[in-house]
Structures are given as structure tokens and as C-alpha cells.
Nucleic acid binder design. Sequence first.
DNA 1: TGGGGAATAT
DNA 2: AATATTCCCC
Length: 239
Amino acid sequence: MGRRASITRGTHPLISIPHLSRSRSRLRHQTPQQLRPTSPPPPPPPIHSPAAASLHKRFVDAVAHLGIKNAVPKTIMQLMSVDGLTRENVASHLQKYRLYLKRMQGLSSGGGGGSDPATDRLFASSPVPAHFLHPNRVPSSDHFMPSFVPIATLQQQQQMAAVAAAAAAAATTGQFGSPPANGKFDQSFLARQTQQQQTLQRMSTPSLHSPVGNYIEDLESANANGGRTVLTLFPTRDD
DNA sequence: TGGGGAATAT
DNA sequence: AATATTCCCC
């Protein structure tokens, strides 16, 4: 009640922002080519992307490594390093994710409500770090490992910002799996795996410190489900 | 001004 | 249901 005082949806500002809503809708008009003489191959509807769950996993990993405290859309987005991902995408998903976490907490004492399998399926695909539900508690030996590991090769300060954020998170609370107490955070992750991003990365300026090492995608999922966990996630907008 | 966060719209 | 957009406040 605090916020949301004004009437719901008044009218948008005049300057209509040219919001490029190229989420996942294309397939509208086809090129005037001679095409399908005898084969009307229905375009495989990209309904479910296998990357959906992967993206969510990435999301959870980022949040886990940053810590709830520093897990803000911008930082998460940067850590995920998904080329097409926008802050809004993450923010939207984060909102939903928080709701999920809250629901889980309430579930412990709520008793009643259940988790709709249909809904939780997505979030259930990825194990939620214990610290998420217990901000008070510090994971003593609970080291959370990211599913996607650092790949290095960064160049922009964005990456650095992410690393800094992770370090800050660990340094500040020291509750997440990046205890600088021994030296520095274990390792941040920086990866790219999206479809075809040609955002080539030149590893220039090798000087200075490189808080990240070169790693390749490694571990994987420790999914507690033995079935299909792929469901939905924010769109993978690629340009 | 930018960005986080929730409400609301699609 | 999930994602996008808008609103509000810091």
C-alpha cells in the first residue's frame, strides 16, 4: 500500500519509447522467395528452448554467488553475461524468483499451500542455495559452486564490476561461497554460451590483475530431478 | 539520472 | 503462467 498510490495505468508518456520488442516474435511475413514447391515444412516452433533451464540455472548461480544482498538485476545481468539479456529481463525474473523463495520459506510453517508443480517446475530445476532461505545463517561448510564456470577473456569493466561485486559481497558479509578471508574469492564465473554472439572478446591489456582464470565449462548440474526440467525462462533475445 | 522494486498489463 | 512494461521511490 505504501507505493502504488496513483491510479493504475494512467496513460503512458507521449514519447513512446521505441521499445524494441523483439522478444521472440518474428515469423510474421515471409520472404518473397520462390520457396516451398512441394515441401511446406512447418517451421519448427521454438516453443521450448533447451536454453531456458540453462538460463535459469545461470541466473540462480549468479544470484547465489553474489548473495541476496548484491543480487540486483544489473549485477546479475552482468555476471550472466548473456548477450541478449537485459536488465529488465533479469528484474522480471528476479521478481518471480524472490516470490518463489518467499513461498518456500512460508511453506515451512505455512502448511497449507503447496507448491504447484506446474509452476515450481522451472525453479525446481535449479537447486536453491540454502543461504537463500536463511539469511541469518551462515553456511559453514556449504560452499556453493556455480554450474557454469569462468571462461575468462574479458575486456570490459562490466566483467570487473561483476567480480568486484562478488568480492564485495563476500567481503562484506562473507556468507557466500566466496570467502576472501583466505585470499580472494575463489573464482568468479564469466561465461558466454548463447547462440551466436559474435561479440568477440579480445583479451587485450593482459597487464593488471586478472582476478579470473581461464576455465571452461565444467561441472554441471546436480539436478535432483531425473526427468525433464526444461521449461521456461526469460526470452533469449538475440540480435 | 539511473536503477531497484513491486504493481500492473499483455 | 511467464514475460514486458509501467510506476514509484531512493
